[in-house]
Design a protein around this nucleic acid. Structure first.
Length: 474
DNA sequence: GCATGATCATGC
DNA sequence: GCATGATCATGC
């Protein structure tokens, strides 16, 4: 006898399945394979190679390993949940430990491919997505950069997970938003940042892979329904590894209202209040003006005492405050995280950090405007994510040029103590440019050729931001 | 007057 | 110590 087949779990009972899975805790994938095979080095080696689990390109391989070696069933590739009789979907997924010791999901959690033709006829409650996404057995393993053989990753958490009701409401709104975009013939413009917790994540074998869609001749990238990385990070920290981090909720007991509409209406009920008036209303007192005062006031309006809201964390929503002058101009461009020169040159656009940031982040633009007496007043807010064409044409071209400039060797000319460079300028592109974003001249990163240069980031041009704003704020 | 380079300052 | 929101300052 070569393999062990003592299935001591009831495949129709979620708890029994979970209990069986909990035996995985503390094991590496290597251990799991070893436990599956009788102690016979030769056979073990053959099994290991036969499954080819070490091949990183074999996606889903680790999930398959758990299915075969721990649950002893052959993996199915159909749209039914893995444990059909129990309605449980098995997901083996990585997490990581950040520099500051906090935990993050390493990846979004792919649920099921989107079939653009059939999905438009599926109601959320009866959808393929929901049959797989409503009860998931999460098997979390720790991803470590230093470990090259992924069989050596260790499984540390196992838990059944169902999204709580407050999340289901938002997941359903997300689902409908995705369906509506497909119905509008815009499957090719789907973006993860369109939605909050459930995203339409890119899922192609190659970057050229395209699918037909029902209401347009344009070919669209293959995409899958996925719980977003930000949502899974929240799940990890709040349902899997309970810790002290709790966030305040915006939608405390408001039911059956679209989340974004609720936020916009709430904020706009304070339209035309000056910053001072808002401080009075919400009893915000300070000696020196905090730099994030205008964003703080938005949290107060939403009933949040601190400066993080549960829904924003889960949905990866970033608040950006925008100041309009009385002449309707925006003085400053919008900055983003800095990039490392040596890392940017190694990236592809499809998986670049700035590209991914824009693809995956939803923004809440909060607009303030100086009135004729130079008093700053709240005008309102809008949710925003970067439009498909702006990202893939304009931002891409600036990103590509930036990479090329670094590869070719950044040209630096010093005139009167100021360094002038040949990074893409705001005057060269309508959407974005590259500019310093450092504390001072000594706050630098290394260029590939060894020179140090002040940290830079991509900025969205102020005029471009202006063009994206709802005209009612002017 | 605005684009571009530079840096301040808070808060984690 | 660093990320990031915010804004200054110079010169074209």
């Amino acid at each position: 006898m070569v393999y062990k087949h003592d299935n001591d779990y009831d495949e129709s009972n979620p708890i029994s399945i979970e209990n069986h899975a909990k035996k995985l805790i503390g094991k590496t994938f290597y251990d799991v394979v070893k436990d599956y095979v009788e102690v016979d080095t030769q056979i073990f080696k053959e099994t290991e190679l036969a499954y080819n689990y070490e091949n990183k390109k074999r996606k889903g391989g680790l999930g398959q390993l758990i299915e075969e070696c721990h649950f002893h069933y052959a993996c199915n590739n159909d749209s039914k949940p893995d444990f059909d009789k129990a309605g449980v979907e098995l997901k083996v997924t990585p997490y990581k430990i950040n520099k500051n010791k906090s935990l993050s999901a390493k990846e979004r959690l792919i649920i099921t491919m989107i079939d653009y033709f059939s999905v438009i006829n599926e109601k959320f409650e009866e959808s393929h997505l929901w049959s797989k996404g409503n009860l998931i057995l999460l098997v979390y393993y720790l991803y470590e950069k230093e470990i090259s053989n992924r069989l050596n990753y260790r499984i540390n958490y196992v838990k059944l997970f169902s999204p709580p009701n407050k999340d289901i409401r938002i997941i359903k709104q997300d689902y409908e938003k995705i369906i509506n975009k497909i119905k509008a013939g815009k499957a090719h413009e789907l973006s993860e940042s369109d939605t909050l917790y459930l995203g339409a994540a890119p899922k192609a074998a190659t970057s050229k892979d395209r699918r037909r869609q029902p209401f347009s001749d344009e070919l669209a990238k293959p995409r899958a329904f996925a719980y977003k990385n930000s949502y899974m990070t929240y799940v990890l920290n709040n349902y899997i590894v309970p810790n002290v981090t709790t966030y305040e909720t915006i939608m405390k007991d408001v039911v059956d209202v679209n989340f974004e509409d609720y936020v916009v209406n709430k904020i706009e009920s304070f339209s035309n209040f000056s910053v001072d008036e808002l401080c009075k209303v919400f009893e915000v007192k300070y000696k020196r003006k905090p730099k994030n005062l205008e964003a703080m006031l938005i949290y107060r309006i939403l009933g949040i005492k601190g400066n993080q809201a549960e829904e924003f964390v889960k949905a990866n929503i970033v608040i950006k405050t925008i100041r309009l002058n009385s002449n309707n101009k925006i003085k400053e461009s919008m900055s983003f995280p800095t990039f490392k020169f040596k890392e940017l040159v190694k990236e592809d656009w499809e998986d670049s950090s700035f590209g991914n940031y824009l693809r995956e982040t939803r923004f809440l633009f909060v607009v303030y405007k100086f009135d004729e007496n130079q008093v700053l007043r709240l005008r309102g807010c809008q949710f925003w994510n970067v439009p498909y064409r702006d990202l893939n044409e304009e931002v891409y071209s600036v990103w590509k040029k930036t990479k090329q400039v670094i590869v070719d060797g950044l040209q630096i000319i010093n005139r009167n103590g100021r360094n002038y460079n040949n990074f893409p300028k705001a005057s060269e592109n309508p959407v974005c440019h590259v500019r310093p974003h450092a504390q001072n001249a000594n706050d630098t990163y290394e260029l590939p050729d060894g020179r140090q240069y002040p940290k830079q980031c991509f900025w969205l041009n102020s005029n471009y931001i202006l063009s994206q704003l709802n005209k009612k704020f002017l």
